[in-house]
C-alpha cells in the first residue's frame, strides 16, 4: 500500500494524508490492527516536515481511525472503518451554521458574533 502527496496542491499536506489513510481504510487496503509507519519514517520518505505527519496522526487518532500503542507503534483502530465515514469538519460547520442562524433570528449582528467568538477562543487559549 502506497501513500502519495502533492506538494503543490491547495489542500494542506496533513489533510491529504488524513484523506488517503481514511480512503485506504474504507477501500479495505489497510485493515484494523495493521501497523502504520512511524512519524519519522513517513516524513522522511515523503520528504516533508515531521510536524505535518504528527498533526495528521494526531487528528486521525482523535477521529478514532488510528491508535498509538506507546513504543509498539501506531495501528489502525478496530472501529476505523465506521469512524472514517465521520467528517468532524463538516459536523462543526453544520453545528456552527445552526447556532449562527439562531443568533441571527435573535437580531445579533455579525460583528457582535465575531467579537464574542474571538473572545471565547482567546479566553480558552489564555
Amino acid at each position: 500500500m502506497k501513500i502519495s502527496v502533492n506538494i503543490e496542491h491547495s489542500n494542506p499536506l496533513f489533510t491529504q494524508l488524513i484523506e488517503q489513510i481514511k480512503k485506504a481504510v474504507l477501500n479495505n487496503d489497510i485493515a484494523a490492527g495493521d501497523a502504520l509507519p512511524s512519524i519519522r519514517q513517513l516524513a522522511n520518505d515523503l520528504d516533508i516536515n515531521h510536524k505535518t505527519v504528527a498533526k495528521a496522526y494526531r487528528l486521525l487518532e482523535r477521529d478514532g481511525v488510528i491508535q498509538t500503542k506507546g513504543y509498539r507503534g501506531t495501528f489502525i483502530h478496530q472501529n476505523a472503518k465506521e469512524n472514517s465515514t465521520i467528517n468532524l469538519n463538516e459536523w462543526v460547520l453544520s453545528e456552527l451554521d445552526k447556532t449562527l442562524t439562531s443568533f441571527r433570528e435573535l437580531g445579533i449582528t455579525e460583528s457582535e458574533m465575531r467579537i464574542a467568538f474571538n473572545s471565547l477562543i482567546n479566553s480558552r487559549h489564555n
Binding site: 500500500m1 502506497k2 501513500i3 502519495s4 502527496v5 502533492n6 506538494i7 503543490e8 496542491h9 489513510i21 485506504a24 489497510i30 501497523a35 502504520l36 509507519p37 512511524s38 519514517q41 513517513l42 520518505d45 515523503l46 520528504d47 516533508i48 507503534g73
Partner: peptide, 17 residues
C-alpha cells in the same frame, strides 16, 4: 538529483520498516 527533481508527487510505503 533532489534539486533537479520537479515532480510534485511524493510517494511512500504505508508499512513500517
Amino acid at each position: 538529483m533532489r534539486e533537479h527533481n520537479k515532480n510534485e508527487h511524493r510517494i511512500a510505503d504505508l508499512q513500517p520498516r
